[in-house]
Write a protein that binds this DNA or RNA. Structure first.
Length: 285
DNA sequence: AGCGGGACCTGTGGGC
DNA sequence: TGCCCACAGGTCCCGC
């Protein structure tokens, strides 16, 4: 499911529900939904959620130790709870008495500052997603985190251009989280369409000007999607259970066989890097 | 280096 | 109605 705009939307919609709330308990319903590098969920007990942010497609909840906790028990104090939703993951607040569903992978029992209780659910139909209770040290030991590329909304054309090394298909490069973080199959196709660049062009063949146009398209599309609360194709819902609306704006993704809105040519479907890819053979060069 | 294919999982939708 | 296959927003790993 979620690429950068959807993850950003989840972070924005979940934080009002969990801000300054404390973990009372945590229950893992499927062992593989906890990342192998994670501290045990039990280490969350007593920790307070002090921030919510996003890095690429990762949700990062900052943790603070309550003042009452002594420094002497500092053996393994987690600093953040990280979640990767992969294809079908969902994070949402639920009433304290709500029974979990068949795809719930983890349940956090939470307490609000006013003393009332609720649950934080991590649901994931396909069970590809994972959560991780981490310290800075653990994050640094995690290859995926360590090698994660820059945020697309925070780089300029020169920095972007320098990251497009080698000779592979530009779409494959955009999907590589080490090159740039947060872009997935939908936004890769949409950005390449908007920039009028063929997805199988080799990165080496792109002029500096084309790279600049592509970065501008990526940034424009991500910002517009965030403003529409992301795209909902099938599973994706934000933390309040609402769908996004950006799917109504798709020009390429999922439109194979239909007419190009820019030049009228029939959009073509192919496979690049093992991923379904839609492009316009008429106006993408 | 980079690509294709398979693996990890479950559900859905289309064709027959 | 039912069965089988293809396919799905992501990432990793292997072999060529």
């Amino acid at each position: 499911m979620p690429e950068l705009p959807e993850v950003e939307t989840v972070v924005r919609t979940i934080y009002p529900h969990i801000r300054d709330c404390v973990f009372n308990d945590a229950q893992l319903l499927r062992a593989s939904s906890l990342h192998p590098l994670s501290l045990p969920l039990s280490t969350l007990k007593g920790m307070r959620i002090s921030s919510a942010s996003r890095r690429g497609k990762l949700i990062v909840l900052g943790l603070a130790r309550p003042d009452t906790q002594r420094k002497s028990q500092s053996a393994k104090i987690p600093q953040m709870l990280v979640a990767h939703l992969r294809m079908t993951g969902r994070l949402f607040a639920a009433e304290a008495n709500l029974l979990h569903g068949s795809h719930t992978r983890c349940i956090f029992a939470m307490r609000r500052p006013d003393g009332s209780d609720f649950q934080l659910f991590f649901d994931d139909t396909r069970a590809f997603g994972q959560i991780m209770v981490a310290t800075d040290e653990i994050l640094h030991a995690w290859k995926f985190w360590r090698e994660l590329g820059p945020e697309p909304l925070e780089i300029d054309a020169t920095q972007f251009s320098e990251r497009l090394k080698g000779s592979r298909a530009i779409k494959a490069a955009l999907l590589d989280q080490r090159v740039i973080a947060g872009i997935g199959n939908i936004y890769a196709d949409e950005a390449l369409f908007q920039a009028a660049i063929l997805p199988d062009r080799s990165t080496g063949s792109l002029s500096f000007s084309e790279r600049g146009v592509l970065l501008a398209a990526i940034q424009d599309i991500l910002k517009r999607s965030i403003s529409q609360c992301g795209s909902s194709i099938r599973d994706y819902l934000d933390a309040d259970g609402n769908a996004g609306a950006f799917q109504n704006t798709f020009m390429a993704y999922g439109r194979g066989g239909q007419q190009c809105a820019r030049c009228g040519t029939i959009l073509q479907k192919s496979r690049i890097g093992g991923r379904a890819t839609v492009f316009c053979p008429g106006c993408q060069k």
